[in-house]
Design a protein around this nucleic acid. Structure first.
Length: 421
RNA sequence: GUGGGUGUAGCUCAGUUGGUUAGAGCGCCGGAUUGUGGAUCCGGAGGUCGCGGGUUCGAAACCCGUCAUCCACCCCA
């Protein structure tokens, strides 16, 4: 029986990895130019870290985590998202003591036990950023601007930025009873999930996509109406900042987000090109989380994007070109040619020239076929005749022009052709 | 967790009301070209028909089960 990969866990094959590399490079580039620094945290943590940060009543914690016991019985969990671990590291290493702005970005696999479908996997990859310590609307603007800059630079199609104000915890606590009072009498019109949510997380009812739920919550009292002046002012400043930078957005008062730790600004970038899973990236402010996890009160804001989803949307024109133009194929054959070719191959590589060969090919014809398939611009042919003459034959695969090169000068002759000075 | 679609060659897929040795295109290897790629022609290799039962003289096809995969619900990146 063949051993196969785990359901919802995919291999990234060489044909596709350049696309990922391209996305990663762009993400790293923009994150660093926005002043964020890379952090690498473990992909598994103590289970309580996620339970405490994401929220015990969320789907992620209730039924989607990969949790297992360590040998001493400690409950560990494969990270379902990146913020919790980053916050844990921030606290554990007392980064608050560093006077520099603590702005991090990360990249890596996340794990959620969900039913796979288009754009949804059990192991998926995120690029995310977290900006600690600044309770300033400009920090929100900066974070959203980075997200938007990255996605725009990748020329992803049909993007929409949706944004909402969740207010402070106290605002939501004040709003909650009025919302519950409104929903309770209408309970029968809501889906089963939402009936449960009235007690566990009533705000989530507003974000339900079931048409009946949407209809019944249409006339519900809005969070914005019971928002404190402080929260209102803050959010206005965020919007004003986005206006200033020319970043377009849609206000969406239903946008609640699935994770419990968000407050004030929440946002989500969606597209129409991804099937049912239409979120490319999302984030928000989470001022209470650091304290919840045992740190001192620290405001923070961040986002994460799904690499698979970006890759699905990445236009073909954005895929980096193959490296054939700067690759030499060394076609060495025959009893004397083959060993000489091995040396030449190594010399070229040591000189920084990308050089390849297919050792399975024994004839010149087979070598040239491989050189063609690899789209190499140059093929260096070395047979027994060339060896006795102390030469190699360099063929330009595009022009079919050929010229003799002394074996002793192969590297010197080829290097300027391949590597731009 | 629920629902639907699909499983036949490396890939994309045909395969008639059940009938003998399971096909095509592309790809791959070789030859035409004794040392020159792509195009053309010729030849060749490659298959537990997802798996396990059942019905039948006979199953890739029909029935049951199972697994995988895709899509959707849900949820989210």
């Amino acid at each position: 029986m063949m051993i196969k990969g785990i359901k919802g866990v995919k291999d990234l094959l060489p044909e596709e990895s350049p696309r990922w590399r391209f996305i990663e490079d762009k993400a790293r580039h923009w994150a660093t130019t926005f002043g964020f620094q890379e952090i690498r945290v473990p992909i598994f943590e103590v289970t309580t870290l996620f339970a405490r940060s994401i929220g015990a009543s969320t789907d992620i914690v209730e039924k989607e985590m990969y949790t297992f016991q360590d040998r001493d019985g400690t409950s560990l969990t494969l990270r379902p998202e990146g913020t919790a671990g980053t916050v844990r590291a921030y606290i554990e290493h007392n980064r608050a003591a560093d006077p520099l702005p603590q702005k991090y970005f990360y990249f890596g696999p996340m794990f959620r036990h969900e039913r796979p479908q288009a754009g949804r996997l059990r192991q998926f990859h995120q690029f995310g950023v977290e900006s600690f310590g600044m309770a300033d609307p400009r920090a929100d603007v900066e974070t959203i601007a980075l997200l938007w800059q990255l996605l725009s630079d990748l020329t992803l199609p049909a993007l929409t930025l949706e944004i909402n104000n969740l207010g402070y915890t106290s605002d939501r606590e004040a709003y909650r009873p009025t919302l519950v009072a409104y929903l309770r009498p209408l309970m029968e019109k809501l889906c089963v999930n939402c009936q449960r949510r009235i007690d566990t997380n009533p705000l989530r009812v507003l974000d339900c996509k079931v048409p009946d739920c949407k209809a019944t919550t249409e006339a519900a009292p809005k969070l914005a109406e019971s928002m404190s002046d402080k929260a209102r002012t803050y959010f206005d400043a965020v919007l004003k900042g986005l206006d200033t930078l020319g970043i377009l957005y849609h206000l969406n008062h239903r946008l609640v987000r699935g994770l419990d730790y968000y407050c004030l600004t929440t946002f989500e970038v969606t597209t129409t090109n991804l099937g049912a899973q239409n979120a490319v990236g999302a984030g928000g402010r989470y001022d209470g989380l650091v304290e919840t996890l045992g740190g001192s009160p620290t405001p923070a804001v961040g986002f994460a994007v799904g690499i698979e989803r970006i890759s699905m949307m990445l236009p073909e024109s954005q895929t980096p070109p193959p490296a054939g133009a700067t690759t030499v194929y060394v076609a060495a054959f025959g009893d004397q040619g083959a060993p000489v070719g091995l040396t030449v191959l190594h010399d070229l590589r040591r000189a920084g020239v990308r050089a390849v060969v297919d050792f399975r090919s024994n004839t010149l014809k087979a070598h040239l076929r491989q050189a063609d398939r690899l789209k190499c611009r140059y093929t260096l042919m070395i047979g027994d005749d060339e060896v006795t003459k102390g030469l190699a034959l360099l063929r330009n695969m595009d022009t079919k022009g050929q010229s003799d090169i002394p074996l002793s000068a192969v590297v010197a002759s080829i290097k300027p052709l391949i590597l731009p000075s």
